[in-house]
Write a protein that binds this DNA or RNA. Structure first.
Lengths: 208, 208
DNA sequence: AGACTTTCTTAATGACCGGTTCATATGTCC
DNA sequence: GGACATATGAACCGGTCATTAAGAAAGTCT
C-alpha cells in the first residue's frame, strides 16, 4: 500500500515554463485599476489588460476576483497607508499627528500620477447584494483607521499634550469624517490648495 | 396626395389599455433601489421587480437606465434635498443654517425606513468608464450644493451675523466635506448619536 | 533524449447585462 | 360591434460577466 516513492507535490519555482510577468508588479497594476474604477466597475478583462497576465494565470495565482481585490487592498494599505501610520507614530503631539495625517493624505489624494482619493473609501460603497462582503471588508478597514486615530489621541492624553477632558472618541470620529470627505472632494476635482484650506478649517475644531 | 383627414398623432392618455402602475410611485421605488445599490449596482431587472413595471413599459416611459436614474436623482433632490434647502433658507443666521443643515441631514441619513447616507454622494463615485457621465452628473450636483452653502454664508455677512473677514469659500468647502463624510459614516453603521457628536465637533470650527 | 512541471493560448461555460420585438390583452372611440 | 390606441407578457438580441477546461509551449530535471 505504501508506495516506494511518493512524489511530494511541493510546487517548484524553478521548474516548468517560467511565467511571463512579475507577480508583485502585476498586483500593483491590479491595485491601480481597482483604485481608479472601484471593485464592481473593474472587469476581469480590465485586470488582464492592465496586469499583462492571461486569464487562467490570473486565476491560478490570485484565486478569484474578490481575493485579488483583497490582496490589492492590503498592498494599498502598505504603500499608501504608510502616510497615515507614519504621521500618527512620528508626530510629537496628538494635534500634530492628526494635522500631519490629514495633510499627508490630502497630498496623496491630489498627486498627479495616481487615482484621486482613497481606494479604501471609494472603491466599494454601494453595489449589488452579492458583493456585500467586499463592502464590509472595506468598512472594517475604515473603522480600524478610526480606532487607530482614537488610540493616538489617548496617547496624547497620557503624554499630556491633550487635555484629559478631551473626548477622544468624538474627535476621532470627527477627523475620520473629514478624512473620508476629502476623498470625495478629491474625486470632485478639488485642488491641493482647496484640500489644505479644508484642513485649516478642520483644525480650528481642536480642543483648547 | 393630401389625405382628406390626417390623424394627428397626439397620444391619448385616456384611450388604449390603462397602465397597471402609477408613474410617480414607480419612480419613488426606482429612487430607493438606486439609493440602496448605486447606479451600476442596480440592474434593470432589479428596477422591474421593485417598480412593478414590465421592461417594455419601463423603457417606453422612462427612456434608458441613465435617464431613469437622472429622474430618480431629481426626485431625490425634491424629497430629501428639502432638508438642506429649508435649513439654509429658514435659519435666522448663517451659523444656525449650517448647523441645522448638518443635523437635518444626519437625521435623514440614519432614518430606519430609508437607505443610509446621501444618494447623491454615494450612488456613483467610481465605476467603469462608460458611466462617466453619470458620475459627473452627480459631481455637479454636489458642487451646486457647496455653492448654495457658500451663498448662504455670504448672506450671513450681509446680514451681519458673520464677520466680513470670514472666508466663505473655505467654510463652505469645509462643511460640505463634513456633510459628505457623514454619508460614509452612516454607511459604516454610525448611530444618530455619533453623527450628532461629529457635528458638535465640526461646529467648533465656526469663526469667532 | 525524454519525463516532468508549470505557464501559456484558445475557447468555452452558464448566467446575466441593457435593450428590443412582437403578439396579445385591455381599454376608449365611433 | 368594430376600428383604434396603449400596455402587457414572454421571448429574444448581441454582448459581457466571472470562471474554467483542454491542450500546446517552454522551461528544468534525471
Amino acid at each position: 500500500m505504501t508506495p516506494r516513492k511518493v512524489k511530494t507535490k511541493k510546487p517548484s519555482a524553478v521548474m516548468g515554463r517560467p511565467r511571463g510577468f512579475d507577480r508583485d508588479e502585476a498586483l500593483v497594476e491590479a491595485m491601480r485599476v481597482f483604485w481608479a474604477r472601484g471593485y464592481e466597475g473593474t472587469s476581469i478583462q480590465d485586470l488582464v489588460d492592465a496586469m499583462g497576465v492571461n486569464k487562467p494565470s490570473l486565476y491560478s495565482i490570485f484565486g478569484c476576483k474578490e481575493e485579488l481585490f483583497r490582496e490589492a487592498v492590503e498592498l494599498y494599505d502598505r504603500i499608501e497607508g504608510i502616510h497615515t501610520t507614519r504621521s500618527l507614530e512620528d508626530a510629537p503631539s496628538a494635534r500634530a499627528a492628526v494635522e500631519e495625517m490629514l495633510r499627508a493624505n490630502a497630498r496623496a489624494y491630489t498627486a498627479s500620477d495616481k487615482p484621486r482619493g482613497c481606494m479604501i473609501v471609494l472603491s466599494s460603497l454601494l453595489g449589488s447584494p452579492e458583493n456585500e462582503r467586499v463592502r464590509t471588508f472595506l468598512a472594517e478597514n475604515r473603522l480600524r483607521g478610526e480606532r487607530a486615530l482614537k488610540q493616538r489621541l489617548e496617547r496624547g492624553i497620557l503624554d499630556g499634550d491633550l487635555p484629559a477632558s478631551a473626548e477622544v472618541g468624538k474627535l476621532a470620529a470627527f477627523y475620520t469624517t473629514v478624512l473620508e470627505g476629502l476623498s470625495i472632494q478629491s474625486r470632485d476635482g478639488a485642488s491641493a490648495k482647496k484640500l489644505a484650506a479644508i484642513i485649516d478649517a478642520a483644525m480650528l475644531a481642536w480642543p483648547t
